[in-house]
């Protein structure tokens, strides 16, 4: 399967070119946040405050790593379930967030918001945390260290694998692939 090498943060043109089903290898910088950090960010926005991290044009990975062993960059670092972030996502897209990485399907509202904001949702290898850890070359906590595994981090990654799940034209990897293999069962 052909792989497309992309750099992160993604350029606007690069995001527009992505199609559901594309297999990517991402190199560059990505931000990391999951439930607790999302909640804090959205609460700040609701109060009219600035965010402690600039999301404009950024890539956000839904992940909470296991601790790094001494001398290691990071522990296991696979994706967490994206749909839990759905309730917080629209305000972040409004802040300019461009690329989200996680696992599993998202709500119809988020699919529409992705089209509206010309952004993209990627999925990576759920439950392959040890493998994905090898793609991380640098990891630093940049915000909310008290949240531990739920802190906001910045990672430098090399050839981090991901698939385009929802593209900015409404393309849906899950729908298009599952249709091919869904069939009536012979009991």
């Amino acid at each position: 399967m052909g792989k497309i090498c992309v750099s992160s943060p993604f350029s606007e043109e690069a995001v527009l070119e992505l199609k559901a089903g594309d297999s990517l290898l991402i190199s560059g910088s990505i931000l990391v946040a999951r439930d607790a950090a999302h909640r804090r960010l959205v609460e700040l926005l609701a109060k009219g405050h600035d965010l402690p991290v600039n999301l404009t044009g950024q890539t956000l990975y839904y992940m909470g790593p296991s601790p790094a062993r001494p001398g290691a960059v990071i522990g296991a670092c696979g994706p967490t379930t994206s749909r839990r972030m759905d309730r917080y996502t629209v305000p972040l897209l409004e802040q300019g967030l461009k690329v989200m990485i996680g696992k599993g399907e998202r709500s119809a509202d988020i699919k529409r918001a992705i089209i509206k904001h010309q952004s993209v949702y990627l999925v990576t290898l759920g439950g392959a945390g040890a493998l994905l850890g090898e793609c991380v070359k640098k990891a630093e906590t940049i915000c909310y260290p008290e949240l531990g595994a739920e802190a906001i981090m910045r990672l430098e990654v090399e050839e981090f694998p991901a698939f385009v799940a929802y593209d900015c034209r409404g393309g849906d990897l899950f729908e298009q692939e599952r249709t091919k293999y869904h069939h009536m069962c012979k009991d």
Partner: peptide
């Protein structure tokens, strides 16, 4: 047999 006819596949990406 029924579940493997759903088409969900590995990590939900079809199969």
């Amino acid at each position: 047999n029924r579940l493997n006819c759903l088409g969900i596949g590995p990590l939900g990406m079809g199969g």
